[in-house]
């Protein structure tokens, strides 16, 4: 009856911003990013990439509530960079990585199919 629509899990509401940033008022160079309609898939992916950066002092993610389909990523950096720049950099790294995986996968599939054609 009053159940929420199932697609609320992954469809961004009209006019909502995918990502919002709030600066931490007490700690320098720290921010909280709220990403709407995402889950551990992206949360953990971005967090692990952030942690690999030596300029990051702290990076963590959480899903605040099981019925809210959002992730919060909290980042604190040192003086060399800002949380916004570091998350952009991390996502760029990840995009490159997945591009690389995609290319390799495509060529490997082609090669396998070619082999199958010649041997059968």
């Amino acid at each position: 009856m009053n159940a929420p629509d199932r697609f609320e899990l992954f469809v961004l509401p009209e006019g909502a911003k995918k990502v919002t940033m709030t600066r931490d008022t007490k700690i320098p160079n720290a921010s909280m990013f709220v990403i709407l309609k995402e889950d551990h898939t992206v949360g953990n992916l971005v967090r692990m990439q952030l942690v690999a950066d030596p300029d990051i002092i702290f990076a963590g993610y959480r899903m605040p509530h099981p019925l809210e389909h959002n992730v919060n990523i909290r980042i604190q950096t040192n003086q060399n960079t800002t949380p916004l720049d570091s998350i952009k950099k991390s996502i760029e790294c990840l995009t490159n990585e997945f591009l690389n995986i995609e290319d390799q996968f495509k060529t490997m599939v082609q090669r396998k199919k070619h082999m199958a054609d010649t041997y059968i």
Partner: peptide, 25 residues
């Protein structure tokens, strides 16, 4: 399935990246 999954992750990252570069305070 695999290829589509890779592309979906790329699209996800891309939508976050665009929002980060455009609309941040």
């Amino acid at each position: 399935i695999v290829l589509s999954a890779i592309q979906i992750i790329k699209a996800k990252l891309n939508s976050i990246q665009t929002q980060l570069s455009e609309g941040m305070i």
